[in-house]
């Protein structure tokens, strides 16, 4: 599905949390339509990398370019950029005081100033697509984790984003709910959405990713198509990591 035309480009990105060097000279280019899965041990900087792309984490040095434009500083420019990049969080973060439908329609109505009636119609189609249209008038707390995460995906899609970021979308879910969320993500990937997915779901990485990026200690250690990465990892860190997670 990749087009060879870069949508997200990170160049020598560095980020410190105090003395902790969490992103070390990271270079990464993601093409339009490409699905990149980021894996690695915890604390390796995967989430920070994902969150840096829409500047939820500001970086200390280096550059991030999205769709030809460098990330703007705080302000309206940044808000506009964020509206074009969908984000799905580990803990869903649905707006607790709004119904599922209101969660999905808030962005298009307030940020894009679209007509509420048209937005509601599109939102219902999206909720239908992720299989929870019957829950539209409920509040987030009334839904299961898997349903909430699918609602969060619908909320991000409602902005018609150019790319989607997933920050460990299934890590907070009960095992039996992981599949329903991954199904939605897989179908998105098939439709050509540009996706950056931080996850521990190796199955998803194998069958939905165009490229697997392995991170450790704030560095991009290895990147390769999934078959190659899982079949014959080159770096010792990746071999070590895979041997630990694939033995069970």
């Amino acid at each position: 599905m990749t087009t060879g035309e870069p949508l997200i480009v990170l160049e020598s990105v560095n980020k410190w949390f105090g003395p902790l060097h969490v992103l070390q000279d990271v270079d990464l280019s993601i093409d339009r339509g490409e699905v990149v899965v980021v894996i690695g041990p915890s604390g390796s900087g995967k989430s920070t990398l994902c969150r840096a792309i829409n500047r939820l984490e500001p970086i200390n040095s280096g550059s991030i370019v999205f769709d030809g434009q460098p990330l703007p500083a705080e302000g309206r420019g940044l808000a506009k950029l964020r509206s074009e990049v969908g984000m799905v969080f580990q803990s869903f973060n649905l707006f607790a005081h709004k119904t599922i439908l209101e969660n999905v329609t808030l962005g298009p109505i307030k940020v894009r100033k679209e007509k509420p009636a048209a937005v509601r119609e599109r939102a219902m189609q999206l909720l239908d697509r992720v299989g929870i249209s019957s829950q539209a008038s409920k509040y987030p707390a009334q839904l299961s984790g898997g349903q909430q995460q699918r609602a969060a995906i619908a909320r991000a899609l409602a902005m018609q984003p150019k790319a989607m970021l997933f920050d460990e979308p299934t890590s907070a879910l009960d095992p039996e709910m992981v599949g329903e969320v991954l199904d939605v993500m897989t179908s998105l990937a098939r439709e050509g959405m540009t996706m950056v997915v931080v996850t521990h779901e190796m199955g998803f990485a194998r069958h939905a990713a165009n490229r697997v990026v392995f991170m450790a200690d704030g560095q991009l250690v290895e990147q390769a198509p999934p078959d190659e990465f899982f079949g014959s990892p080159k770096s010792d860190r990746a071999k070590d990591f895979l041997s630990k997670i694939l033995t069970h």
């Binding site: 829409n54 939820l56 309206r76 808000a79 506009k80 950029l81 964020r82 509206s83 074009e84 990049v85 969908g86 984000m87 969080f89 803990s91 973060n93 649905l94 707006f95 607790a96 808030l106 962005g107 307030k110 940020v111 969060a152 909320r155 991000a156 902005m159």
Partner: peptide, 20 residues
Amino acid sequence: GQAEAARAIGLTFTQNLRFV
């Protein structure tokens, strides 16, 4: 996470406060 999600869909600081 609430404010973060609001920022992630492109709400400005004031909209974030007001609606979320």
